[in-house]
Each structure stands twice: as structure tokens, then as C-alpha cells.
């Protein structure tokens, strides 16, 4: 009996030990089982293996490319330099040679590389590096471009000038005051009709149909980079004369047309009257340099032609699909608890 008891005890203890570790072991077992059952069929498994092989091949390819990339490709940039602080106040062209295999693809990247690695005194405007701020407009190889949107030409030397026929503050930075003043003169903001100005600002919002909004496509995208205006020979000759008797330039006129097309604007006639003089619009000779140069692919030339049709009363602003206003609801999108 004693032997039987001892055996029973041993059994119970061993069962106990087994049970206590069962969870752990079973977990391990399951994991390995899961790993084995990753592929439900042989074809699937083979496909996965192929993918893995490809992956390693691609790695090799990229490695090869990297090795290729390490061979430097030198490219020379000739850049317009003017420093107002030195005694010799003459602008000059300075050349810089950089390795474009060690540089990202755009002109702006090259400019930044030169500034960080070679000459920290080189100055230019930049901000968004993706063609939406409009501050890096320069003249690359004779044509105005946004430096951030124009790729580096791999061969030959590239000449970079500031925007043409503008006063140079330093290197590639030009004085945009006149250009922006002209933009502000066309009143780039909505002027509602008198009868609409009843409630305080921000209480109500204007209605506009989708169709009417689509009329402004190709006008609202303007980023005021001044590439178009400074590419226009007429703007060179007549853009800088004194205030009322100057050619406003394609950028300002495009924006003027944008506010004339806008159905929410109520001051169309006043706007047109402001433009009715010998210089502001009619100095445009439809050279169309503006349309060919625009980095946002807008058509200032077309806008000016339309503006003239409006000025000559060949065209009239059509009646808007929707008129009137609705009460503004600034908290429309946010949950009520957060608003209060």
C-alpha cells in the first residue's frame, strides 16, 4: 500500500508540475505551429520565397546604384552676385561647381548646397520648397522659374539671375514692393454689395454654387511669385512708372479678373472703372510670355483678354446661380462640449 501511495503521490505531483507549465509550453507550441502554418499551400510558399529573393536582388541593385552614384558628376552654376555692403558696388557673375550626384534634383537644392558647403554669403529667398509660397522665383537660363520646381539640367553651365528688371537688394533677392503695391491696388478682397452689409462681419456667409466657383479655377491658384510680371517686356518698360500711370502687370491683372469673376463680389463696376485708363491694362500687347512662364500653369494672358472684353462691355458678368447669405456657423464641425 505504501508503495502505491508513494506512486500516487508522485503522479499527482508530476501532474501538478505539468499543469503548472502547460500554459507556457502550449503557448510555445502554438507559436511554432503558427510559424509553420504561415503558408497555406506550396505555391504560396514558393511565391513568398521568390519575393524574398527579389527583395535581396533589389537590395543588390540599389547597392550597385549607390556605388554608381558615388562617382561625382560636376556641374557649374553661374550665379549673379551683388553685395550692397562692399565698397565695390558692381554686380558680377560668380561660378560654383557642385557634385549633382550628391544633391537633390531641383535648382533650389543646388542653391542650398552651395550656400551650406561653399559660400554662406549667397542669398536668395525660399520658404516652402514645394512651389506654393512663391518666394524662390529666379531667372534660370534666361527663363523665370521657381527654383524649387525646376530641375537641374545635367549638362552645361546653368546661369541663375534674379528676376529681370527689378531692383536688386542682394544677390538673387529683388525688391518686390512695387509689385505687391500694384497687387494691393486692385483691391484683392471681396467687396460685398451695400444691401448685403447688414450684419456684423463674420455673422453670415455668402452663397456660391459649385459651378460659379469653378469659373475661378485657374485664377485663384496664383501665388504671386512675380515670374509672369517680370517676364513681360511691357512690364519692364511701363511697370515701374508712377502710380496711376503704370502697367499693372499680368499677376495683378489676373487677380483683378479673379475678383471680377467672383459671384460673391459686388463691386464689379467700380473695379472696372479703376482699370479704365491708358496704362493699367491696355499696355499689354499679348506677348504671352506670362502664360508661357507661369509655374502654376495659369493663363494671365487669357485673363487680360477677358478683362478687356469686360472693359469694352462685350462681356458682362453673368447672373450668379446662388445669391444671398446664410448665417455663419463656425462651430459646425466640432462637438458641442468642446465649443463651450
Amino acid at each position: 500500500m505504501s508503495i502505491l501511495r508513494k506512486l500516487l503521490r508522485a503522479l499527482v505531483v508530476s501532474i501538478h508540475i505539468f499543469l503548472s507549465y502547460y500554459h507556457y509550453f502550449s503557448h510555445l507550441h502554438k507559436k511554432t505551429y503558427f510559424q509553420q502554418r504561415r503558408f497555406f499551400s506550396v505555391t504560396e510558399f514558393k511565391y513568398a520565397q521568390k519575393q524574398e529573393d527579389k527583395g535581396t536582388k533589389e537590395d543588390k541593385d540599389t547597392k550597385k546604384k549607390d556605388e554608381k552614384k558615388k562617382v561625382p558628376r560636376m556641374k557649374t552654376f553661374k550665379i549673379y552676385r551683388f553685395d550692397p555692403e562692399t565698397g565695390n558696388k558692381k554686380p558680377k557673375m560668380q561660378s560654383y561647381t557642385i557634385d549633382i550626384n550628391d544633391c537633390r534634383p531641383m535648382i533650389l537644392d543646388a542653391l542650398m548646397k552651395i550656400k551650406t558647403e561653399q559660400d554662406s554669403t549667397l542669398s536668395f529667398r525660399k520658404s516652402c520648397r514645394e512651389g506654393i509660397c512663391g518666394s524662390c522665383g529666379v531667372n534660370v537660363d534666361g527663363i523665370n522659374r521657381l527654383a524649387c520646381l525646376h530641375k537641374i539640367r545635367p549638362r552645361g553651365t546653368t546661369k541663375i539671375y534674379p528676376l529681370p528688371h527689378m531692383y536688386v537688394i542682394k544677390d538673387l533677392i529683388v525688391d518686390m514692393n512695387k509689385f505687391l503695391a500694384q497687387h494691393s491696388r486692385i483691391k484683392p478682397y471681396p467687396i460685398p454689395k451695400q444691401e448685403h452689409c447688414v450684419k456684423a462681419e463674420g455673422e453670415e456667409q455668402f452663397l456660391q454654387s459649385i459651378k460659379d466657383r469653378e469659373k475661378m479655377d485657374g485664377l485663384v491658384e496664383c501665388i504671386l511669385c512675380a515670374c509672369c510680371s517680370t517676364s513681360c517686356p511691357e512690364y519692364w518698360w511701363h511697370g515701374h512708372t508712377k502710380a496711376p500711370n503704370d502697367f499693372l502687370g499680368p499677376a495683378a491683372l489676373l487677380n483683378a479678373y479673379r475678383w471680377i469673376v467672383d459671384t460673391r463680389d459686388g463691386a464689379t463696376q467700380e473695379r472696372l472703372n479703376d482699370l479704365k485708363n491708358y496704362y493699367n491694362v491696355y499696355r499689354c500687347h499679348q506677348i504671352n510670355n506670362c502664360t508661357s512662364v507661369c509655374p502654376k500653369r495659369l493663363e494671365p494672358g487669357r485673363a487680360i483678354a477677358q478683362l478687356r472684353l469686360h472693359l469694352a462691355r462685350f462681356k458682362k458678368k453673368p447672373k450668379p446661380d446662388m445669391e444671398g447669405k446664410v448665417p455663419a456657423d463656425p462651430y459646425k464641425a466640432c462637438p458641442k462640449d468642446e465649443c463651450e
Binding site: H165, H240, I287
Partner: peptide, 25 residues
């Protein structure tokens, strides 16, 4: 605008001489 820039002796950036000839112009 012109007076201010002339007082500051800022040069005018090159225009006709550097602008690339295109079909439009």
C-alpha cells in the same frame, strides 16, 4: 519706389540681355 532704390544704389537686374528668346516674344 524708384527714388528709394536709387538712393540705396541698388542695381537693376539684367532683363533684355539675359531673357531667353522664345516664340511668343
Amino acid at each position: 519706389h524708384d527714388e528709394r532704390n536709387m538712393r540705396l544704389k541698388r542695381p537693376q537686374s539684367p532683363h533684355l540681355t539675359i531673357y531667353a528668346p522664345q516664340l511668343t516674344s
